[in-house]
């Protein structure tokens, strides 16, 4: 008979797999000539649509919707770029030195250079290499993504205990999953959690990149993306 305490924890990982959003497409405008403006416009539009998806996804994380609306907002405002970056990293795992921003938008170094995305490219690749080395699987990716949201270190949390409970349940889910799936490596959960500082560092660079794009004012940005950038 399996220990009853383990059942709900495994459930969290399977639930996170079920609520994982559908594939997303960049759909760059074919009538616009290639170059910096087109690449950045495509990425900003993609990010805006992905943010809507992320907000919907967050509501399906067990325990997230029980937080106050203010705390839900604070966590998302802190962690949204980490979640975007983590998704790019996971999509890029099957590729060689290419970043898969969307199913139809993979960028290699040469294309990144010619379209003004080299800084972003260079910032995200180390995280892809680290994830490849760890051979991160989908269950681990969805759990880490939820942990990144719960662990976003927002300065404006009203109910710290409730956020701590969310962190604990996701952390336990990861440990439980690793205990079952990777018993050969008792440090695997720790190794995965140790990627989070690099994720935060990478997301910070990405926010700075898009903030400077906003300040230059050459690329149209949708309202939600602007709102989230301003919250940073």
């Amino acid at each position: 008979i399996p220990p009853p305490a383990k059942k709900p924890l495994t459930k969290i990982v399977s639930h996170l797999l079920v609520v994982e959003p559908e594939k997303i497409y960049a759909m760059p405008d074919p009538s616009v000539p290639d170059g910096d403006i087109k690449a950045l416009t495509t990425l900003c539009d993609l990010a805006d649509r992905e943010l809507v998806v992320i907000i919907g996804w967050a509501k399906h994380i067990p325990g997230f919707s029980s937080l106050s609306l203010g705390d839900q907002m604070s966590l998302l405002q802190s962690a949204w770029m980490e979640i975007l970056v983590l998704s790019i990293v996971f999509r890029s795992l099957a590729c060689d030195e290419e970043l898969v921003y969307a199913e139809d938008y993979a960028v290699d170094e040469e294309r990144a250079r010619s379209s003004g995305l080299l800084d972003l490219h260079v910032a995200i690749l180390p995280l892809v290499r680290r994830f490849k080395k760890l051979r991160v699987d989908k269950e681990e990716f969805v759990t880490l993504k939820a942990i990144a949201l719960a662990n976003s270190d927002s300065m404006h949390i009203e109910n710290l205990e409730a956020v701590q409970r969310l962190q604990d349940s996701l952390h336990e889910a990861l440990q439980d999953f690793e205990g079952c799936q990777h018993p050969e490596d008792p440090r695997r959960a720790g190794k995965l959690l140790m990627t989070l500082p690099l994720l935060r560092q990478t997301a910070t660079k990405a926010v700075q990149h898009f903030y400077s794009v906003k300040m230059q004012g050459k690329v149209p940005m949708h309202k939600l993306f602007l709102e989230m950038l301003e919250a940073k």
């Binding site: 639930h15 509501k59 919707s65 907002m73 939600l224």
Partner: peptide
Amino acid sequence: KEKHKILHQLLQNSTSPVDL
């Protein structure tokens, strides 16, 4: 919340809380 209107609205769109 006024400043972050879209996020606020999207979070308020009803979905029943998930409690496993």
